[in-house]
Design a protein around this nucleic acid. Structure first.
Lengths: 124, 124
DNA sequence: CTTGAATCTGACATTGATGTCAACTTCTAC
DNA sequence: GTAGAAGTTGACATCAATGTCAGATTCAAG
């Protein structure tokens, strides 16, 4: 498929897809005329990239991590080096702390929302 | 206390504290000479601000939200308007989705880390 | 008073993914 | 072959919190 379809199917802009390629996250075959041509696997790949970006990893870490991830149908292409494992562990812990903080923030919002809703239904 | 001490005690840079003030998030008394003078309450306030920033809220939302939060010792100073409640609910749901995504990312990292660790201890 | 630490304001830089625009090329359907 | 849709590259803009620097002022202690 070409870039337009991939963008539509993943909800990611063409601009970002080209950026991913520049970052070494997403390779594409080229047509004789130079247009990018993606296989079905690209959809899954883009979703993964987005998820990892959302978790606060930068392009470089994602580029190192992707080949170590298990495909739905197979084994990883690479195994993380000890250095990478160390960095990923740090990321993991960061994400863990972030989850804790987010839960706290969510609880705060819930309380404010609840308070306002109670106040709206009765003059407590 | 003055800005240096507040920065030290909260781990937030002086630059950011001044920025919070400019955004209407953090008020300060002023000495006759114009230096900022904070009460003890400021420490807690800054921590809250940081937590909400980490949750992806922008300055404007935080400014609206802060007066609706319950102080440790008392009731909120304001109750959220219906409009604000709507916006906060959207934020709450966004945070909720983000937590789900983060957990997924954390799991992915754990798997990659575990795979590499297994491989290091035995040739499986 | 003096001196050095701390603070003030204001300006400019940074970061990194993404938006947007321009000029050009390729593809597809007629 | 031709028109219009879709794709290409490259450049510049954006956003928002924070870093950093400069020059001036204030504070606190001797």
């Amino acid at each position: 498929m070409r870039i337009g379809e991939l963008a539509r199917r993943t909800g990611v802009s063409e601009r970002s897809l080209r950026y991913y390629e520049a970052q070494g996250l997403l390779r594409a075959q080229r047509t004789p005329g130079g247009h990018r041509d993606y296989g079905e696997w690209a959809v899954d790949r883009v979703v993964r990239i987005q998820t990892l970006y959302a978790a606060g990893l930068n392009s470089e870490k994602i580029a190192q991590l992707l080949p170590c991830m298990r495909d739905e149908d197979g084994r990883p292409n690479e195994v993380a080096t000890p250095k990478l494992v160390g960095e990923l562990t740090a990321e993991r812990d960061r994400i863990d702390r972030m989850i804790t903080e987010l839960i706290r923030s969510r609880d705060v919002l819930d309380e404010v929302i609840d308070t306002a809703s109670e106040g709206a239904s009765a003059g407590r």
